[in-house]
Write a protein that binds this DNA or RNA. Structure first.
Lengths: 128, 128
DNA sequence: ATTGACTTTTACGTAAACGTAAACTAAAAT
DNA sequence: ATTTTAGTTTACGTTTACGTAAAAGTCAAT
């Protein structure tokens, strides 16, 4: 398995190294270290970072994203833990579904407004 | 036409009056005033507020929301203006569409993870 | 071997989006 | 008439999510 350096990841996702270190500060990502203390990121770390950035685009706070990541990450073996995780996952899934519906409604509204504007433009061009 | 007071709107949307005043500070909403200076909100103002809150849920900044609102709000009569507005609207519409696709992918991933967890729980329960 | 690019920690700075408190006015209720 | 209750402005405080700079160590290349 090979590793990414912090600046490689930063470049790939077009974010600053500070940002990546900040996510580590907040406990969202945990790269290993070389003897000299340099951070090294695995593919899994990269995937986590991708998740974080996607969450951000949806307006989730880092705190919320942190919770969601622990869903993917933790090996929750106990039955109680599993049940808890599933319940939490269902809740988050519902939130995501609602957001999608919400967004689709927004999309519809924007489309109808655009259609209206296009019509107006059409009329302007007809009477030229 | 009847009006809402600031605290009525705050209660309806479960936000603070400060928040509503802040949106006004930023030029997102413009209620009329009584002689004594009290703010009164029309249904249209209420609709704008709803739009703002929806935008926020999607992670748009107030600045972006401000731009989008002016799309709905302004009567852009000139042809150049219309064309500009349509172009901007199309751009924003594309962004929204991308976000929907992005969210749907997230949803799928969450669903498959949940399915995995449910399967594990199932196996635990079988060997009881 | 030394320059230059990269990395580390520490720490202070900042913009956005409000929270909160003070000091005051107006409206509603007792 | 006078307490509540709700509203106003002004202004400083706070959290989140980083930006930025300093001081020092490390890696890569000439």
């Amino acid at each position: 398995m090979n590793y990414y350096t912090i600046s490689q990841l930063a470049e790939q996702f077009d974010i600053s190294t500070r940002t990546i270190r900040y996510y580590e500060e907040r406990g969202l990502i945990s790269p290993i270290r070389t003897d000299s203390g340099q951070r090294l990121y695995t593919k899994k770390d990269r995937a986590v970072l991708k998740l974080i950035l996607r969450g951000k685009r949806f307006g989730f706070s880092l705190e919320e994203i942190h919770e969601m990541i622990s869903l993917f990450d933790n090996d929750r073996t106990g039955r109680k833990q599993l049940e808890k995780t599933i319940a939490y996952g269902e809740k988050k899934l519902k939130e995501v579904t609602e957001r999608i519906e919400d967004l689709m409604q927004l999309k519809q509204e924007m489309e109808s407004i655009l259609a209206d504007f296009r019509e107006r433009l059409q009329k302007l061009e007809e009477t030229e």
